[in-house]
Design a protein around this nucleic acid. Structure first.
Lengths: 132, 132
DNA sequence: TTGCACACGTTATAGCATAACGCAATTGAT
DNA sequence: ATCAATTGCGTTATGCTATAACGTGTGCAA
């Protein structure tokens, strides 16, 4: 999928996520955009919904937060399953892809005749700096 | 870790999860236990916290729900990373383990000097019956 | 022009999770 | 035996996450 021109709200939300050091919750995004006229959660959630659809933002299920995709300009959907390492101390998120992992999971799934729609892989722990 | 004797509340919560066909939210569990004297969410969450710690219950991050571990009597902690296939139509959950997937993820993590604490793998989609 | 699709704004509500207080029972060391 | 620490429990209150339902305006194609 190619990313269409973002609307005003979508751009605002995306910019906040891109400039952030780590993942943000929808309500944190809302607070950061109050000066730009945002008043209600739905304004954020609706923008996020589209950004997720376009693949330029990821949702981190295990911490109810959102991050900008780590592949600027690239099409995220082409990378297969995305996995995340999330530091529970500093919040830093590292995104990565592993073909072999994808392959194994999809093999298993195929054996079960299960039809996958969306796959989540999230590793929570401590990044190098915080583990020291 | 070996599972200690469960307390009354822990047993009640565990029994509800075991008898359930699929994953349950904490509030659904609460409702099912009102007849047994449960009145507040914390009674459920506190029991769940222990059951998760003992490894006899899993949390499904992507749907904010809980399931009994699929390995009766067995020690879940010995299976490495647990992965789940979750049917978005009927709610059925299949639990599985894949050593190769674990291995690849842990290899990557090691390369990053990231210290993993808890890993989530959840595949949402349609089970064989529902996809038909 | 009419009808449709889409983004947007607002209010209200639903659903998920924990903080903070206090009490009772258990355990284990002195 | 006694004291202190730990653990489970009950209750109230609160905070965080997400969506339902309604209405508005705009652009565009039939």
């Amino acid at each position: 999928m190619t990313t269409p021109q973002l609307t005003k709200n979508q751009s605002l939300v995306f910019d906040v996520l891109e400039k952030a050091e780590g993942p943000l919750s929808a309500y944190t995004i809302l607070d950061k955009l109050r000066d730009h006229g945002f008043r209600a959660p739905l304004q954020v959630y609706r923008a996020l919904e589209k950004l997720l659809e376009y693949g330029v933002v990821h949702r981190l299920e295990s911490i109810n937060s959102f991050v900008a995709c780590a592949h600027p300009g690239d099409d995220c959907h082409s990378h297969g399953i995305v996995a995340f390492a999330i530091c529970e101390s500093c919040g830093q998120v590292t995104e990565f892809h592993d073909h072999e992992v994808d392959h194994r999971l999809m093999e298993w799934v195929r054996g079960q005749k299960f039809k996958p729609e969306k796959t989540t892989i999230e590793i929570r722990g401590l990044c190098e700096a915080c583990a020291a």
